[in-house]
């Protein structure tokens, strides 16, 4: 498996899928990822694994916001819902979001 964590693979696949669907061009994606990586590199060292895909997500969020798909507040809200769902679900049971 070329991905170190399932969320790396999920972030990768979402980006490829959204490009296939025409939400952004590949040069736009490469430029956004380059900007996110450059910002992180200024802040500290990059290990090429978790922090590479953190920059990847930041780039994806930038393009989603620029395209009017989803802004940071909406993403934070759904993250909180997922966190609550994990905390409310007994260990070993499938975690599902409450009806939205």
């Amino acid at each position: 498996m070329p991905f170190a964590a399932p969320w790396h693979a999920a972030a990768f696949a979402m980006t490829v899928h959204l490009h296939e669907r025409g939400l952004f061009t590949w040069p736009d994606w490469a430029a956004a990822l380059g900007r996110a990586l450059a910002a992180d590199e200024k802040a500290g060292r990059l290990d090429g694994s978790d922090d590479y895909y953190r920059a990847w997500i930041a780039a994806l969020q930038e393009l989603l916001a620029a395209n009017g798909v989803a802004g940071a507040p909406e993403i934070e809200t759904v993250m909180k819902e997922w966190k609550a769902a994990y905390l409310a679900t007994p260990h070993g049971e499938p975690v599902r979001l409450a009806a939205r």
């Binding site: 999920a10 959204l18 895909y53 953190r54 997500i57 989603l64 798909v69 989803a70 993403i75």
Partner: peptide, 12 residues
């Protein structure tokens, strides 16, 4: 970041 990716998947 894993929660963030789950949130993005849900929204999209």
């Amino acid at each position: 970041p894993a929660l963030r990716v789950k949130a993005l998947e849900t929204i999209l």
